[in-house]
Amino acid sequence: MTKRKKLSQGQLRRVRSNQQKRLKKQETHQWLDEQLGPQQEGTIISRFGQHADVESSTGEVFRCNMRRSLGSLVTGDEVVWRAGSEEQSGIRGVIEARHERRSELTRPDFYDGIKAIAANIDQVVIVSAVLPEFSTSIVDRYLVAVEDVGLEPVILLNKVDLLDTKQRQAIERQLSLYQGLGYKVVFASTKQVEGLNDLNQYLNNKTSIFVGQSGVGKSSLVNALLPEQSIDTKEVSEVSGLGQHTTTTARLYHLSCGGRLIDSPGVREFQLWHLAKERVAWGFIELRPWLNQCRFRDCKHQGDPGCAIQEAIDSGSVSQQRFDSYQRILETMEANKPNRNIPGKNN
């Protein structure tokens, strides 16, 4: 795979300058203070550039501007906003403040550093599929990210109707490893209506987010859970074999079970170069009892004498498959990391 060419500092400055110019152009709808109503609480259900859709306490949705001093917002943020006296080109209010997030899911961005994907969530549903390709490596990357921020993961394998009996048995053996670690696993098919009852039970009375590669069927799952939404879906590209983006911005939905679900845009790759190596190891939960137990403090866990993790693998306490996945993540972290200083937070 061809590596993306890294931008120079000058190119990065020009990108950011152009972004700021676009933001200023977007700030065309302004109200005087006396034209705004009282402050009220709301929830961001979707975000579009410098605008965001805010759901009021009564369930009505208002598209609002954001104060420039506010910083960025993501779906799930709890905010303070004010309604305008009249609608201006579809804009109906102003967001003035954001409450502190009780949780957030983040990912590294090549240009902007660490970005929040969604806020105030309880659970992350890692959606994979047999098409375009099932990969435990992708599942492991998401699990590390979810464990790092202390959220609850659910692994969902979609499109199982495309598997024959032998193929399904093979994938079930692979995923039994995760079930043995205590992770919830769901086998789902929107065409055969399989696994949706189990999924509904896991979503019940929680705020969850669907994450995964493009084309794994996240939007189809939302349609199955909420048929009245009629979200657009796309098939996997026959030319590239890759998933095609359907959802372009994260969107929050209310479920009949009482929970809330955020459908997030798919990604082609999910990197972890923003994490310290120690946090990656922590993300593999079966490694935790053996961390800092090796004879040598700088043990690389690659045949070093007195390696506690190698002893755990030999005894069957740690899976060789998962350990190999952990090593692959470490190998790719430096190669994929941008050649510049990354802000600790740039939300």
Rank of each mutant, 00 (worst) to 15 (best):
H29E: 10
G195E: 05
V146T: 03
E104P: 12
P108N: 09
Q30P: 05
Y202E: 01
G59K: 09
V125F: 01
Y202W: 01
E152I: 10
Q11N: 05
H274S: 11
L330K: 11
I313H: 11
E238T: 07
I117M: 01
M1D: 03
L36S: 13
E133G: 02
Q179E: 12
V222K: 04
N158V: 14
A116V: 01
R14Y: 08
R107G: 04
L32W: 12
G259K: 02
N197L: 01
R295A: 15
H99A: 12
E133I: 06
A119T: 09
Q40D: 02
N336W: 03
R13L: 09
V146Y: 00
V160L: 01
D263P: 09
P305K: 14
N346V: 10
E311M: 15
L73A: 15
L156N: 05
D112C: 07
G42A: 04
I262D: 01
R328Q: 04
H274I: 01
L252E: 13
S240Y: 00
A97K: 11
L225P: 00
F284G: 00
R68H: 12
L70P: 04
W290I: 01
D298T: 13
K5T: 05
A250F: 02
Q26K: 13
S319W: 08
V185Q: 00
V149A: 15
E286P: 10
V154T: 08
R22I: 07
L143E: 10
N18S: 14
N346H: 06
V54P: 02
G182R: 09
T246M: 13
L131P: 03
F134V: 12
L225K: 00
I45V: 12
I209C: 01
L131R: 05
R68D: 05
H51Q: 12
E86C: 12
D112W: 13
A119L: 01
I155Q: 08
Q244C: 14
V15Y: 10
S46C: 14
R4E: 08
S128L: 08
S8A: 08
N346D: 08
S85A: 07
S103G: 15
I138Y: 08
Q302A: 09
G37V: 02
E60T: 10
V94T: 12
G344M: 15
A129S: 07
E172Q: 10
D232C: 12
L162I: 11
F187N: 00
M1W: 15
N336R: 15
Q50S: 06
S237H: 10
P305N: 13
D298G: 10
D33Y: 06
S56D: 07
N339L: 14
K3Q: 03
R16W: 02
Q9Y: 06
L203T: 00
L275A: 04
V94D: 12
L242P: 04
R260F: 02
E87N: 07
G42S: 02
D122Q: 13
C294V: 06
I285G: 14
Q123P: 04
L131W: 01
T43E: 05
L330Q: 08
N120C: 13
L242Y: 12
A97W: 07
A308W: 04
R107S: 05
R141G: 15
G266Y: 00
A170H: 07
M66D: 07
Y142C: 05
Q123V: 08
Y111Q: 14
Q167V: 15
